[in-house]
Design a protein around this nucleic acid. Structure first.
Lengths: 203, 203
DNA sequence: CAGGGCGGTTGCGGTGGCGCAAAGACCGCT
DNA sequence: AGCGGTCTTTGCGCCACCGCAACCGCCCTG
């Protein structure tokens, strides 16, 4: 799958489950008026598009390749059958879906209660944890990520994201360019995310 | 359980799953700085507090009784054992948790992209669907619900909720009092939620 | 019936972040 | 090298919403 290709589309019936072998996939939900929200990014080894086969059989979001991708998919029936035969697998699936539910609940709380800057910090930290790669300047997010993407993760606009990153850049916290972000001072970002004083009080 | 009692508390280890026989329970998540978000309301016949036993064993939120409650609880081990014995049960649990995940994702999209008024309308409609009771004046939400509660469901402040409800009241859309809301014109609320013109264009 | 408390209402001022608009930077393609 | 498109930056004005604060009214309690 080349970058920018759609692996499946919101509303489409789900015949299969998916797992990502290589590349990166973005899960995007679109509202009735076309507003988009990034639900999550999928990395190698993760399953996706499985929620549909556990619920009403329709994909609740779009999946689009962010980098060139290799995926593996299997018929939905195989999954349920496997779970019937090996309960451990069902329990495992439950714990995965449960974990995701927790994460979305946390994001809901963030979006509902925190200011934009903190939300952006949280989003970047989450991405670092999930797709961080050490480079000499700091930690780089290992796939193409536009301002628009970050905006759709945090419920703001690309303009505000751009301004925020510019501000951070001038403070030496991040370095960012076209679809690419490097965090130079992760601890500073954590301070922002936790709403601590930006510089540790001295004395 | 008398009203306002806590059934369990965020962070506490979960020894048991719960089901509500009668009454109403509010699930509230508290952030590091004390800001609260209402995740959902539980009605009779619904299970709750089960996410913990599927994941890390710690309750991710508080459960507090909103009205006097009767609950039933069972040891966590019984649940997993039951699922191992009867895979159908596991599949069922999966579909319930999956459904909740979808719902939270939808709320995330709403909070991230919609204006306050629409969010409040959505929240009320959701409550009507879940706990609506027909009365002569319209549909009443069948349990005590404060402005603060609505605010915590929609990511705003009780002040804004109060102002919004007042405005709707003066338009005859709702009737509200102390911890109590009656929707007089559900269709008008839907119009607001869907961002349609408030009065149908005539001609 | 007096008093206290909780929940709700409302005015006012401030502002964070949006929306618009225009320009700039960079990439890939031919 | 030239060109078009995509992504980004930045200034400006505005407004939805928040935060504060004061007040009101209902309900419960003694």
């Amino acid at each position: 799958m080349p970058a920018a290709a759609a692996l499946f589309t919101q509303g489409e019936p789900a015949a299969a489950g998916h797992a990502l072998i290589d590349g990166r996939v973005k899960i995007v939900q679109t509202g009735p008026d076309g507003q988009q929200v990034v639900m999550r990014f999928i990395g190698p080894g993760e399953m996706f598009g499985t929620l549909a086969i556990f619920t009403d059989g329709l994909y609740p979001a779009d999946a689009v390749a962010v980098a060139d991708c290799v995926e593996l998919s299997w018929p939905a029936a195989a999954m349920t059958e496997l779970m019937d035969r090996h309960p451990v697998i069902a329990r495992n699936a439950l714990s995965i879906v449960g974990g995701r539910l927790r994460e979305v609940q946390n994001r809901l709380r963030e979006v509902a209660t925190e200011r934009v800057e903190r939300r952006i910090a949280h989003a970047l930290l989450r991405l670092v944890r999930q797709a961080g790669r050490r480079v000499e300047a700091g930690v780089e997010i290992d796939f193409p990520l536009s301002r628009q993407d970050v905006a759709e993760m945090t419920g703001t606009t690309l303009h505000t994201v751009s301004r925020t990153l510019s501000a951070w850049e001038s403070q030496g916290i991040v370095e960012s360019g076209r679809q690419q972000v490097v965090i130079r001072k992760p601890h500073a970002l954590v301070a922002i995310a936790e709403d601590l004083p930006p510089v540790p009080p001295r004395g």
